[in-house]
Design a protein around this nucleic acid. Sequence first.
DNA 1: CGCTAATCTAGAACAAGTTTCAGACTTGAT
DNA 2: ATCAAGTCTGAAACTTGTTCTAGATTAGCG
Lengths: 219, 219
Amino acid sequence: MPAEAKVSAKVNKPAKVEARAAAPVSPPLTERQEARRRRILHASAQLASRGGFDAVQMREVAESSQVALGTLYRYFPSKIHLLVATMQDQLEHMHGTLRKKPPQGETAAERVAETLMRAFRALQREPHLADAMVRALTFADRSVSPEVDQVSRQTTAIILDAMGQENPTPEQLSAVRVIEHTWHSALITWLSGRASIAQVKIDIETVCRLIDLTAPAAP
Amino acid sequence: MPAEAKVSAKVNKPAKVEARAAAPVSPPLTERQEARRRRILHASAQLASRGGFDAVQMREVAESSQVALGTLYRYFPSKIHLLVATMQDQLEHMHGTLRKKPPQGETAAERVAETLMRAFRALQREPHLADAMVRALTFADRSVSPEVDQVSRQTTAIILDAMGQENPTPEQLSAVRVIEHTWHSALITWLSGRASIAQVKIDIETVCRLIDLTAPAAP
DNA sequence: CGCTAATCTAGAACAAGTTTCAGACTTGAT
DNA sequence: ATCAAGTCTGAAACTTGTTCTAGATTAGCG
């Protein structure tokens, strides 16, 4: 009946199809579709690495990834969706990389700060890419909530990993939320040239103190 | 020689002209120019109050404020500049309002949290306006840094006011920075529907604990 | 194989931010 | 009062995100 995989009905956008590598269940993608999706994300990241948010132009992404503009929009319903998906992609890499070398700090706060600073250094290597991803993330409106939430969960997972906490308390989860807020906002101030790298470091270290504040003795 | 006030040279954009009400020194504006500026900001806030960021369309702002499109761009070189200036305007009101009834809390942390929650409630009354202003603020790139910085300073001033600290320590200033980060980011998650009002409250209260953590005995 | 529904493509069309330009209007100085 | 320089206006043009359309392709099923 359908063709190239029944992604579902008309309204369906492979966006939801973005079954993360972990659970490609919802709407299975054809090999060619999966390939297209990868080409698109690759082109997006490449263009972003050059000139940041503005350099990711939908027509160029379509051309670079050898896909028609309409198809690009079928996969990613907006530029913001595309960039947020790009961020999901990069975050997975990052999480994998971070897993390999766990932070060395004594306290949970130290380990989290160390992990975030490591991530920050990675972003510094591709500042334009960071710009595109972070701007998209904070500019996203309600229509992108599910995807942004996914990014948020991934970030939370990274931080909890660094804390080494199996089952964090509600208080600790609040602290993690605040750390994420600070992380995103600090990145923005850095990207827009209003804060130095050193300043970001201080902010991260400052907010990480909240962890110790909320991490009492283990049961 | 010039006309309607010598704003300066060719490249000059009254943007810099935005000498806040406090210090209209740099390039003095004609009365008519000041009036135009007010009309523009008013139209901007009005449109924003309706439909948020997207509803603030430059052509409409120009029409509503009875100014040519080109003139609008002379006063505010981009939509982002316009909305950030709108935020500066609103922040001043807010600061004035907050001054009148200082927060009641015992500790500095309580007072800051109370103040921010009061501001938050004000934003809730005009969620669309809040959306427009906050989105603009976080989307702003380097070209808007001076204006965004001004907003940041104003916010810092409000928080320091609430703390009741005359000369804060560097540590306290760091805490304030982190509070601002959390404030902005929490607003974004609320505006994009990813966090409830209650959640924002918790985040604010959580981060405000940092103040007590960094506020030792007075000298 | 041949069908049928969905997908993909190429390209036009539309929307809103931004730029540009010629001409009318103001302003402040002489 | 006059004039030079800067400002405002109105309208068109340009850019880039987004939508739409008609026709070519593809996938899976009988």
